[in-house]
Protein backbone atom coordinates (compact mmCIF):
# COMPACT_ATOMS: atom_id res chain seq x y z
CA UNK A 1 0.00 0.00 0.00
CA UNK A 2 2.67 2.47 0.94
CA UNK A 3 4.44 1.54 -2.25
CA UNK A 4 1.38 2.58 -4.22
CA UNK A 5 1.11 5.84 -2.30
CA UNK A 6 4.72 6.61 -3.11
CA UNK A 7 4.06 5.99 -6.76
CA UNK A 8 1.04 8.27 -6.79
CA UNK A 9 2.94 10.95 -4.94
CA UNK A 10 5.86 10.68 -7.33
CA UNK A 11 3.57 10.85 -10.34
CA UNK A 12 1.79 13.93 -9.01
CA UNK A 13 5.09 15.59 -8.28
CA UNK A 14 6.32 14.83 -11.77
CA UNK A 15 3.22 16.40 -13.30
CA UNK A 16 3.73 19.48 -11.14
CA UNK A 17 7.17 20.08 -12.62
CA UNK A 18 7.24 22.80 -15.30
CA UNK A 19 7.63 21.75 -18.89
CA UNK A 20 9.77 24.11 -21.00
CA UNK A 21 6.90 24.46 -23.47
CA UNK A 22 4.76 25.90 -20.68
CA UNK A 23 7.37 28.50 -19.82
CA UNK A 24 7.66 29.41 -23.50
CA UNK A 25 3.86 29.74 -23.70
CA UNK A 26 3.73 32.27 -20.87
CA UNK A 27 6.76 34.16 -22.14
CA UNK A 28 5.04 34.53 -25.52
CA UNK A 29 1.89 35.76 -23.77
CA UNK A 30 3.92 38.39 -21.94
CA UNK A 31 6.07 39.20 -24.96
CA UNK A 32 2.96 39.88 -27.07
CA UNK A 33 2.56 43.01 -25.00
CA UNK A 34 5.58 44.51 -26.77
CA UNK A 35 5.27 42.61 -30.04
CA UNK A 36 1.68 43.62 -30.89
CA UNK A 37 1.03 47.05 -29.37
CA UNK A 38 -1.83 47.59 -31.83
CA UNK A 39 -3.77 44.60 -30.64
CA UNK A 40 -3.69 44.98 -26.88
CA UNK A 41 -7.46 45.32 -26.65
CA UNK A 42 -8.02 42.17 -28.63
CA UNK A 43 -5.39 40.37 -26.56
CA UNK A 44 -7.16 41.55 -23.44
CA UNK A 45 -10.36 39.94 -24.73
CA UNK A 46 -8.40 36.79 -25.49
CA UNK A 47 -7.01 36.65 -21.94
CA UNK A 48 -10.49 37.06 -20.50
CA UNK A 49 -11.97 34.42 -22.79
CA UNK A 50 -9.05 32.15 -21.89
CA UNK A 51 -9.80 32.53 -18.19
CA UNK A 52 -13.46 31.80 -18.85
CA UNK A 53 -12.51 28.70 -20.86
CA UNK A 54 -10.09 27.62 -18.12
CA UNK A 55 -13.01 27.80 -15.72
CA UNK A 56 -15.10 25.57 -17.98
CA UNK A 57 -12.15 23.21 -18.34
CA UNK A 58 -12.10 22.69 -14.57
CA UNK A 59 -15.60 21.23 -14.64
CA UNK A 60 -15.82 19.83 -18.17
CA UNK A 61 -12.27 18.65 -18.78
CA UNK A 62 -11.45 17.45 -15.29
CA UNK A 63 -14.73 16.67 -13.55
CA UNK A 64 -16.75 15.77 -16.67
CA UNK A 65 -19.65 18.12 -15.93
CA UNK A 66 -21.21 19.44 -19.15
CA UNK A 67 -22.70 22.92 -18.95
CA UNK A 68 -24.60 25.07 -21.43
CA UNK A 69 -25.01 27.86 -18.91
CA UNK A 70 -21.55 28.74 -17.79
CA UNK A 71 -22.22 32.36 -18.75
CA UNK A 72 -24.39 32.57 -15.62
CA UNK A 73 -21.28 32.94 -13.49
CA UNK A 74 -19.52 35.18 -15.99
CA UNK A 75 -22.52 37.49 -15.95
CA UNK A 76 -22.91 37.43 -12.17
CA UNK A 77 -19.24 38.31 -11.79
CA UNK A 78 -19.50 41.11 -14.33
CA UNK A 79 -22.55 42.65 -12.68
CA UNK A 80 -21.07 42.17 -9.19
CA UNK A 81 -17.84 43.96 -10.12
CA UNK A 82 -19.70 46.58 -12.13
CA UNK A 83 -22.20 47.38 -9.40
CA UNK A 84 -19.50 47.56 -6.75
CA UNK A 85 -17.55 50.05 -8.86
CA UNK A 86 -20.69 52.01 -9.66
CA UNK A 87 -21.39 52.41 -5.97
CA UNK A 88 -18.11 54.06 -5.26
CA UNK A 89 -15.78 51.13 -4.65
CA UNK A 90 -13.80 51.19 -7.86
CA UNK A 91 -10.71 49.29 -6.74
CA UNK A 92 -10.21 46.59 -9.38
CA UNK A 93 -8.71 43.94 -7.09
CA UNK A 94 -11.47 44.42 -4.55
CA UNK A 95 -14.03 44.11 -7.35
CA UNK A 96 -12.32 40.97 -8.61
CA UNK A 97 -12.42 39.29 -5.21
CA UNK A 98 -16.01 40.38 -4.65
CA UNK A 99 -17.06 39.00 -8.04
CA UNK A 100 -15.33 35.68 -7.31
CA UNK A 101 -17.08 35.40 -3.95
CA UNK A 102 -20.50 36.21 -5.44
CA UNK A 103 -20.10 33.80 -8.36
CA UNK A 104 -18.53 31.11 -6.19
CA UNK A 105 -21.43 31.37 -3.77
CA UNK A 106 -23.91 31.09 -6.65
CA UNK A 107 -21.96 28.05 -7.85
CA UNK A 108 -22.19 26.47 -4.41
CA UNK A 109 -25.92 27.16 -4.22
CA UNK A 110 -26.61 25.68 -7.64
CA UNK A 111 -24.24 22.72 -7.26
CA UNK A 112 -26.90 20.35 -5.87
CA UNK A 113 -28.64 20.69 -9.26
CA UNK A 114 -25.45 19.62 -11.02
CA UNK A 115 -24.22 16.85 -8.77
CA UNK A 116 -27.27 14.71 -9.27
CA UNK A 117 -28.42 13.69 -12.69
CA UNK A 118 -26.83 12.79 -15.97
CA UNK A 119 -25.40 14.86 -18.80
CA UNK A 120 -28.74 15.68 -20.36
CA UNK A 121 -30.29 17.00 -17.16
CA UNK A 122 -27.13 18.98 -16.48
CA UNK A 123 -27.34 20.62 -19.90
CA UNK A 124 -30.96 21.56 -19.32
CA UNK A 125 -30.48 22.74 -15.75
CA UNK A 126 -27.48 24.94 -16.52
CA UNK A 127 -29.26 26.39 -19.54
CA UNK A 128 -32.31 27.09 -17.39
CA UNK A 129 -30.28 28.85 -14.71
CA UNK A 130 -28.66 31.24 -17.17
CA UNK A 131 -32.00 32.01 -18.83
CA UNK A 132 -33.48 32.89 -15.44
CA UNK A 133 -30.55 35.15 -14.60
CA UNK A 134 -30.77 36.82 -18.00
CA UNK A 135 -34.42 37.64 -17.47
CA UNK A 136 -33.78 38.93 -13.94
CA UNK A 137 -31.01 41.20 -15.21
CA UNK A 138 -33.30 42.41 -18.00
CA UNK A 139 -36.29 43.10 -15.78
CA UNK A 140 -34.49 44.54 -12.78
CA UNK A 141 -33.58 47.63 -14.74
CA UNK A 142 -33.26 49.89 -11.71
CA UNK A 143 -30.28 47.83 -10.58
CA UNK A 144 -28.74 46.53 -13.80
CA UNK A 145 -29.79 49.15 -16.34
CA UNK A 146 -31.78 46.47 -18.20
CA UNK A 147 -31.17 46.19 -21.93
CA UNK A 148 -29.34 49.54 -22.03
CA UNK A 149 -26.55 48.09 -19.91
CA UNK A 150 -24.93 49.21 -16.68
CA UNK A 151 -23.66 52.74 -17.23
CA UNK A 152 -21.37 54.99 -15.25
CA UNK A 153 -18.77 52.54 -13.98
CA UNK A 154 -15.47 54.13 -13.01
CA UNK A 155 -12.57 51.85 -12.16
CA UNK A 156 -9.67 53.14 -10.11
CA UNK A 157 -6.06 52.47 -11.15
CA UNK A 158 -4.82 48.93 -10.48
CA UNK A 159 -3.10 48.86 -7.07
CA UNK A 160 -3.53 52.62 -7.08
CA UNK A 161 -0.74 52.92 -9.66
CA UNK A 162 -1.79 51.89 -13.16
CA UNK A 163 -4.78 53.70 -14.62
CA UNK A 164 -6.76 52.00 -17.40
CA UNK A 165 -5.79 53.65 -20.68
CA UNK A 166 -7.34 53.79 -24.14
CA UNK A 167 -4.58 51.64 -25.60
CA UNK A 168 -5.42 48.73 -23.32
CA UNK A 169 -1.90 48.46 -21.86
CA UNK A 170 -3.06 48.27 -18.26
CA UNK A 171 -6.05 46.19 -19.28
CA UNK A 172 -3.96 43.48 -20.95
CA UNK A 173 -1.31 43.25 -18.25
CA UNK A 174 -3.96 43.23 -15.55
CA UNK A 175 -6.02 40.51 -17.24
CA UNK A 176 -2.91 38.47 -18.06
CA UNK A 177 -1.68 38.68 -14.46
CA UNK A 178 -5.02 37.56 -13.10
CA UNK A 179 -5.15 34.75 -15.65
CA UNK A 180 -1.63 33.64 -14.73
CA UNK A 181 -2.20 33.65 -10.96
CA UNK A 182 -5.50 31.81 -11.26
CA UNK A 183 -3.89 29.38 -13.70
CA UNK A 184 -1.12 28.63 -11.16
CA UNK A 185 -3.73 27.90 -8.52
CA UNK A 186 -5.70 25.70 -10.92
CA UNK A 187 -2.56 23.87 -12.00
CA UNK A 188 -1.61 23.12 -8.41
CA UNK A 189 -5.14 21.98 -7.61
CA UNK A 190 -5.49 19.72 -10.62
CA UNK A 191 -2.11 18.13 -9.95
CA UNK A 192 -3.06 17.35 -6.36
CA UNK A 193 -4.94 14.38 -4.94
CA UNK A 194 -8.07 16.53 -5.30
CA UNK A 195 -7.52 16.85 -9.05
CA UNK A 196 -6.79 13.16 -9.29
CA UNK A 197 -10.04 12.33 -7.52
CA UNK A 198 -11.96 14.56 -9.95
CA UNK A 199 -10.51 12.68 -12.88
CA UNK A 200 -11.40 9.41 -11.19
CA UNK A 201 -15.01 10.58 -10.86
CA UNK A 202 -15.06 11.71 -14.47
CA UNK A 203 -13.82 8.35 -15.71
CA UNK A 204 -15.99 6.16 -13.51
CA UNK A 205 -18.09 7.62 -10.75
CA UNK A 206 -19.05 4.26 -9.23
CA UNK A 207 -15.52 3.02 -9.04
CA UNK A 208 -14.35 6.33 -7.58
CA UNK A 209 -17.02 6.12 -4.91
CA UNK A 210 -16.05 2.53 -4.15
CA UNK A 211 -12.43 3.53 -3.63
CA UNK A 212 -13.41 6.10 -1.04
CA UNK A 213 -13.80 9.32 -3.06
CA UNK A 214 -17.03 11.17 -2.15
CA UNK A 215 -18.28 12.20 -5.63
CA UNK A 216 -20.99 14.65 -4.59
CA UNK A 217 -18.71 16.69 -2.37
CA UNK A 218 -15.88 16.76 -4.86
CA UNK A 219 -18.10 17.73 -7.77
CA UNK A 220 -19.77 20.47 -5.73
CA UNK A 221 -16.36 21.82 -4.75
CA UNK A 222 -15.11 21.74 -8.34
CA UNK A 223 -18.28 23.46 -9.53
CA UNK A 224 -17.92 26.18 -6.89
CA UNK A 225 -14.29 26.82 -7.81
CA UNK A 226 -15.11 26.93 -11.53
CA UNK A 227 -17.94 29.37 -10.83
CA UNK A 228 -15.57 31.65 -8.93
CA UNK A 229 -13.13 31.49 -11.88
CA UNK A 230 -15.89 32.43 -14.31
CA UNK A 231 -16.81 35.26 -11.95
CA UNK A 232 -13.23 36.51 -12.16
CA UNK A 233 -13.45 36.50 -15.96
CA UNK A 234 -16.69 38.47 -15.70
CA UNK A 235 -15.08 40.99 -13.37
CA UNK A 236 -12.19 41.48 -15.80
CA UNK A 237 -14.68 42.03 -18.61
CA UNK A 238 -16.63 44.62 -16.64
CA UNK A 239 -13.55 46.41 -15.35
CA UNK A 240 -11.58 46.62 -18.58
CA UNK A 241 -14.57 47.77 -20.64
CA UNK A 242 -16.07 49.83 -17.78
CA UNK A 243 -19.45 48.71 -18.99
CA UNK A 244 -21.74 45.71 -18.47
CA UNK A 245 -24.46 44.77 -20.93
CA UNK A 246 -27.06 42.03 -20.84
CA UNK A 247 -24.95 40.28 -23.42
CA UNK A 248 -22.71 38.80 -20.67
CA UNK A 249 -25.58 36.48 -19.80
CA UNK A 250 -26.44 35.63 -23.38
CA UNK A 251 -26.59 32.06 -24.60
CA UNK A 252 -23.86 32.65 -27.16
CA UNK A 253 -21.34 33.27 -24.36
CA UNK A 254 -21.87 29.78 -23.00
CA UNK A 255 -21.77 28.30 -26.49
CA UNK A 256 -18.66 30.23 -27.52
CA UNK A 257 -16.70 29.15 -24.47
CA UNK A 258 -17.56 25.53 -25.14
CA UNK A 259 -16.39 25.93 -28.74
CA UNK A 260 -13.19 27.52 -27.53
CA UNK A 261 -12.52 24.62 -25.19
CA UNK A 262 -13.31 22.07 -27.88
CA UNK A 263 -10.96 23.82 -30.31
CA UNK A 264 -8.14 23.83 -27.78
CA UNK A 265 -8.94 20.46 -26.25
CA UNK A 266 -10.28 19.90 -22.72
CA UNK A 267 -8.51 18.36 -19.76
CA UNK A 268 -4.98 19.77 -19.84
CA UNK A 269 -5.57 23.39 -18.70
CA UNK A 270 -3.95 24.96 -21.77
CA UNK A 271 -6.80 23.96 -24.09
CA UNK A 272 -8.96 26.94 -23.19
CA UNK A 273 -6.10 29.35 -23.70
CA UNK A 274 -5.02 27.97 -27.04
CA UNK A 275 -8.64 27.78 -28.14
CA UNK A 276 -9.24 31.39 -27.11
CA UNK A 277 -6.28 32.58 -29.18
CA UNK A 278 -7.40 30.63 -32.25
CA UNK A 279 -11.07 31.61 -31.92
CA UNK A 280 -10.58 35.34 -31.37
CA UNK A 281 -7.82 35.62 -33.92
CA UNK A 282 -9.96 33.96 -36.59
CA UNK A 283 -12.99 36.02 -35.70
CA UNK A 284 -11.08 39.28 -35.82
CA UNK A 285 -9.15 38.57 -39.03
CA UNK A 286 -12.13 37.32 -40.99
CA UNK A 287 -14.41 40.10 -39.70
CA UNK A 288 -11.85 42.68 -40.80
CA UNK A 289 -11.87 41.26 -44.34
CA UNK A 290 -15.59 40.93 -44.70
CA UNK A 291 -17.72 42.68 -42.06
CA UNK A 292 -20.92 41.36 -43.68
CA UNK A 293 -20.21 37.69 -44.17
CA UNK A 294 -17.62 36.73 -41.55
CA UNK A 295 -20.06 34.52 -39.68
CA UNK A 296 -20.32 32.26 -42.71
CA UNK A 297 -16.57 31.66 -42.73
CA UNK A 298 -16.41 31.08 -38.99
CA UNK A 299 -19.22 28.57 -39.29
CA UNK A 300 -17.53 26.79 -42.15
CA UNK A 301 -14.25 26.68 -40.28
CA UNK A 302 -15.87 25.22 -37.18
CA UNK A 303 -17.64 22.48 -39.09
CA UNK A 304 -14.47 21.50 -40.93
CA UNK A 305 -12.42 21.78 -37.78
CA UNK A 306 -14.62 19.54 -35.69
CA UNK A 307 -14.83 17.00 -38.51
CA UNK A 308 -11.19 16.95 -39.50
CA UNK A 309 -8.78 19.43 -38.13
CA UNK A 310 -9.11 18.92 -34.41
CA UNK A 311 -6.22 16.54 -34.46
CA UNK A 312 -4.17 19.30 -36.11
CA UNK A 313 -3.91 21.46 -33.02
CA UNK A 314 -3.94 18.66 -30.49
CA UNK A 315 -1.59 16.57 -32.58
CA UNK A 316 0.63 19.59 -33.02
CA UNK A 317 0.87 20.11 -29.28
CA UNK A 318 1.68 16.44 -28.72
CA UNK A 319 4.23 16.48 -31.50
CA UNK A 320 5.87 19.49 -29.97
CA UNK A 321 6.15 17.68 -26.65
CA UNK A 322 7.38 14.34 -27.96
CA UNK A 323 9.48 15.11 -31.04
CA UNK A 324 11.53 17.78 -29.39
CA UNK A 325 12.67 15.96 -26.26
CA UNK A 326 15.49 18.41 -25.67
CA UNK A 327 12.84 21.04 -25.01
CA UNK A 328 11.20 18.93 -22.36
CA UNK A 329 12.30 19.12 -18.76
CA UNK A 330 11.94 15.38 -18.45
CA UNK A 331 14.23 14.76 -21.38
CA UNK A 332 17.11 16.33 -19.57
CA UNK A 333 16.71 14.63 -16.21
Amino acid sequence: MSHLQDRVRASLQASRRWHIAEIVFWLIALGSFWAFPRHLLLMNEIAILALFALSLDLILGFAGIVSLGHAAFLGLGAYAAGLLAKNGMGDPVLGLVFAMVVSGFAGLLSSPLIVKGNDLTRLMVTLGVVLILHEIANSWASLTGGADGLQGITINPVLGLFAFDLFGKTAYLYSLSVLFVLFLVARRMMNSPFGLSLRAIRDNQLRAAASGVPPSQRLALAYTIAAAYAGAAGALLAQTSQFVSLDVLDFHRSADVMLVLIIGGPGYLYGGMIGAVVFKFLQDTIAAFTPQYWMFWIGLFLVLFVLRGRSLIHGGVKLFMTRLPWLSGRGRS
Binding site: G149, S241, F243, S245, A287, W294
Partner: peptide, 9 residues
Protein backbone atom coordinates in the same frame (compact mmCIF):
# COMPACT_ATOMS: atom_id res chain seq x y z
CA UNK B 1 -16.29 49.91 -41.61
CA UNK B 2 -16.50 47.58 -38.59
CA UNK B 3 -19.20 45.10 -37.62
CA UNK B 4 -20.11 45.09 -33.92
CA UNK B 5 -22.85 42.42 -34.40
CA UNK B 6 -25.07 44.56 -32.16
CA UNK B 7 -22.94 43.62 -29.15
CA UNK B 8 -21.98 46.49 -26.82
CA UNK B 9 -18.62 45.11 -25.61
Amino acid sequence: LKDDTGNAD
